[in-house]
Design a protein around this nucleic acid. Sequence first.
DNA 1: CCCTGATTCGC
DNA 2: GCGAATCAGG
Length: 149
Amino acid sequence: MEWTAEAIDQLRAYWAEGHSTAEIGRRMGISKNAVVGKAHRLNLDARPSPIRREAEAGERPAAQPRRSSSPARDGASLRRLEQPAQPSAGTVVRAFPRASARTCCWPLGEPGTPEFRFCSGDAMTGKPYCQEHASVAYVKARDRREDAA
DNA sequence: CCCTGATTCGC
DNA sequence: GCGAATCAGG
């Protein structure tokens, strides 16, 4: 794999979108090992992993309180499944990747948390992001000096 | 067995 | 630097 500036940008973009390493690998035509290996060497933020080397170091990050019941499993939710989900008034609801080619899908918040959502701005023509986020996602190689520690 | 990300180490 | 093999967990 030749890690051109473009390839690295793409990796960064997918990484920031919260895609799994395997998914990024599929999209880029490389293995997930290549993705995770490169991400590691680039010192990209380690995303919420299903695991963590907790076995060693004796220090454990204090287990998070578990949700006693999944929202999709309580009675009310099951009943609601009989009807298409209705967005409450004033709520912006969009599927991922996104409902429209003109809607920005920049991720906001931590993937997997209830707060996680996507930017709902107007995407630039031919791009998945609005102007603001496209400027973050696509950085000119020569302007990229001080990003990503 | 499917998946996840992390680390190691020969290249 | 690269990434397959391996590890560790869900």
